[in-house]
Design a protein around this nucleic acid. Structure first.
Length: 641
RNA sequence: GGCCCCGUAGCUCAGUUGGAUAGAGCGCUGGAUUCCUAAUCCGGAGGUCACAGGUUCGAUUCCUGUCGGGGUCACCA
């Protein structure tokens, strides 16, 4: 018997018992089994309210009737030891020993495949990370990377065929900004000459560009032309909203205007902006020198990213670069024009009228100068991927600020290619904020991914050194790396994706309570237990059944019941694309096991006979399951802390 | 202003398709170590599930409205 068989049989018994009261056979399946509020009441149960309408009797009376019918249906094969009622609820209690035997035997038998799904026919493509090559990755990318990696692992374990892809944004005006700053102010230095990580090196020039540009803009604001612009804006209708909000506070209005005007200034008046745009044009026509600089700087960034991904334990099956994909949408634009989904506007821009896909307004797909926009690239890239890999589902892991973009993208794709309808999913996640608010690069509050991990590893290192002072340095560092990584990954993944993460640095480095290190510690303790008893018991099937059937205390059964939930947990995590379900499970499993392990009546080393063996087997099953679950979060285990 | 997401303990967050007494960690507080790793365990206090209606036998969950927070509405990505 397997865990799934218990559930199937329970469902069958419930439905038959309900039907025995005389209601239609469709009523039973509409009533769901659930866990009673406390284990004393039973292992599973269901309410009878919904039957009252059909039977015109009080629910508690019906519950009695259903319970009696259910008792009569039971056979010796059933794992159910007791059927009881609690008011309008029917509760079922399992035979403890048999439940423990079924659950733990399955866990041990399936080993590292316990909880794995069996279908292998569903192909998923998961796009995540998607950094820009003008700066290093920050805390926001960390959440994206960890979510993408974990979701991929979960889908794969649940039975999917997963292709992980990264789409690196390596072209465009923002890339030219760091290139131009390097050309103007770099003085020929390189990551090698300064000893910097390549992506940090390039990021420094991106910041430098913005500083220089801001200085230039500040100067311009003081001039006559700027003041005239401001005055004519004040007198125009454009300033109506600002005036409504700000009144006639001149300083506030000025700030409002110049913030709004910054983009226009960059594009039409700025010297640096002009140079950057000129560089983009040179890049687009393939100017040799520009392309060489671009290649050189991008390579520095890629080298830096490789290091970061490796340290985080993240890999991709396919890496796309926007420099290779940004023209792909042109074919799709042609298709859309032919089918009438898109049209050419008088100013030569190609647009899609969104009322055709259930939205309002229009979306530009080709600018009037014929160049592509983000939406165009995404259309082309998506179609190319389907032609190449034909995934059943394409999942984009992108922050929730782009919800509307993906809504539009998926609708247009569905209208363009009917067979793609419904095969897209935007896994939208909330932003990461600091206790003092949003991260702002201009205010220097961005938390760098590499620095963050290093800091956590450093703290873990101190904690290890404090506890195990006689450890060699290499071993200490290796443990610290795993513990620091576990702390960060668990902390981030324990949030449901849609929520905005309040990243509290002080709390994230906490190694106590519901944390990655707590789960690692649980694993290590069980490992140590295994050594203490000179290896886990090797038993015949009969001996194993006897040992596991000896389990039955509240603490033991609590652990068994949690283990029983593991296959469902994996399934739910995969359905919801939510690693948080796994994180939550791991803590509960660890916590229940710790309670047992710590209890005076469960000192397994001092016990004898089948119960000792049973607890040891249960421990082994917990340890295996912890390893599987931690792996789904991308966290490796440690034999010793 | 239109659309989308959120509002649960002092703080940070879980809460599966509506069900029994709404959970966890941290923090606060009282305990446990001659013992398999104390990065642990046991106990306690702490709630008008933002508010008001509605649907239902039953609503934190579904619907409507109000208030509060965030996002978004580019020939940016």
């Amino acid at each position: 018997m397997r865990i799934a068989d218990i559930q199937t049989r329970l469902e069958e018994l419930k439905n038959k018992a309900i039907e025995a009261t005389g209601v239609e056979s469709s009523v039973g399946p509409s009533i769901a089994l659930a866990d009673p509020p406390s284990p004393e009441m039973g292992d599973r149960g269901f309410p009878c309210f919904a039957l009252a309408r059909h039977l015109r009797k009080a629910p508690p009376l019906i519950a009695e009737e259903v319970a009696q019918a259910l008792r009569e249906l039971l056979t010796d094969d059933d794992i159910i030891a007791q059927v009881s009622t609690a008011g309008p609820y029917v509760n079922l209690r399992f035979d403890s020993g048999r439940l423990a035997d079924v659950v733990v035997s399955q866990a041990l038998g399936q080993a590292d495949q316990f909880g794995a799904g069996s279908e292998k026919d569903r192909r998923w493509m998961v796009e995540f990370s998607s950094p820009n090559t003008n700066k290093p990755q920050h805390l926001g990318h960390v959440r994206n990377n960890l979510l993408g990696d974990s979701v991929s692992r979960i889908l794969d374990f649940a039975g999917g065929d997963v292709i992980r892809v990264n789409l690196i944004n390596d072209r465009g005006i923002h890339i030219c900004k760091s290139m131009l700053a390097y050309e103007l102010f770099g003085g020929g230095e390189t990551p090698e000459s300064t000893g910097e990580k390549g992506d940090h090196f390039v990021g420094r020039y991106y910041v430098l560009f913005n500083q220089k540009f801001q200085a230039e803009y500040e100067d311009w604001k003081q001039g006559e032309a700027a003041q005239q612009r401001f005055q004519s804006w004040l007198n125009s209708a454009d300033s109506k909203n600002a005036k409504k909000q700000l009144g006639d506070d001149e300083q506030a209005l000025k700030k409002s205007f110049f913030d709004y005007f910054e983009n226009k200034y960059f594009n039409e008046f700025s010297d640096l902006g002009g140079q950057a745009r000129a560089m983009l044009r040179r890049w687009e026509v393939g100017d040799e020198e520009t392309v060489a600089l671009w290649n050189r700087m991008n390579q520095w960034v890629f080298d830096g990213f490789d290091e970061t991904y490796e340290r985080f334990g993240i890999e991709f099956d396919r890496v796309y670069r926007e420099s290779e994909t940004y023209e792909l949408g042109r074919q799709a634009v042609e298709e859309g024009l032919e089918s009438g989904l898109f049209r050419k506007r008088d100013d030569r821009a190609v647009v899609c009228d969104l009322d055709q896909v259930g939205l309002e307004g229009e979306k530009v797909l080709l600018r009037s100068d014929g160049t592509t926009v983000y939406m165009t690239q995404d259309l082309g890239t998506a179609i190319t991927r389907f032609d190449e890999y034909d995934p059943d589902q394409m999942v984009y892991i992108v922050a929730d600020e782009q919800n509307y973009h993906f809504d539009v993208l998926f609708r247009i794709l569905g209208a363009l290619r009917n067979e793609l309808e419904g095969r897209f999913h935007h896994l939208s996640y909330g932003m990461v904020e600091l206790p003092e608010g949003k991260m702002k690069s201009r205010e220097g509050t961005v938390v760098d991914a590499d620095d963050l991990l290093s800091e956590m590893v450093h703290l873990a290192d101190e904690a290890v050194a404090e506890r195990y002072g006689d450890l060699g340095e290499a071993e200490r560092r290796q443990r610290a790396e795993v513990i620091g990584l576990a702390a960060l990954k668990y902390y981030v993944l324990d949030f449901a994706p849609r929520t905005t993460v309040q990243f509290d640095p002080k709390r994230s480095i906490d190694f106590q309570g519901r944390t990655g290190p707590y789960c690692l510690y649980g694993f290590a303790r069980i490992n140590s237990l295994g050594k203490r008893v000179n290896g886990w018991p090797q038993l015949s099937e009969g001996e194993q059944n006897e040992a596991l059937s000896a389990l039955g205390t509240d603490r033991e059964m609590e652990v068994v019941r949690i283990l029983q939930r593991w296959p469902d947990t994996v399934e739910t995590a995969a359905e919801q694309l939510n690693p948080g379900r796994v994180a939550e499970f791991l803590f509960e499993l660890c916590s229940a096991f710790s309670s047992l392990y710590n209890d005076a009546d469960h000192r397994v080393v001092e016990l004898e006979g089948p119960r000792r063996q049973g607890i040891l087997l249960l421990s082994k099953a917990v340890q295996q399951t912890l390893a599987i679950g931690l792996d789904l979060l991308g966290i490796p285990t440690l034999e010793e802390m």
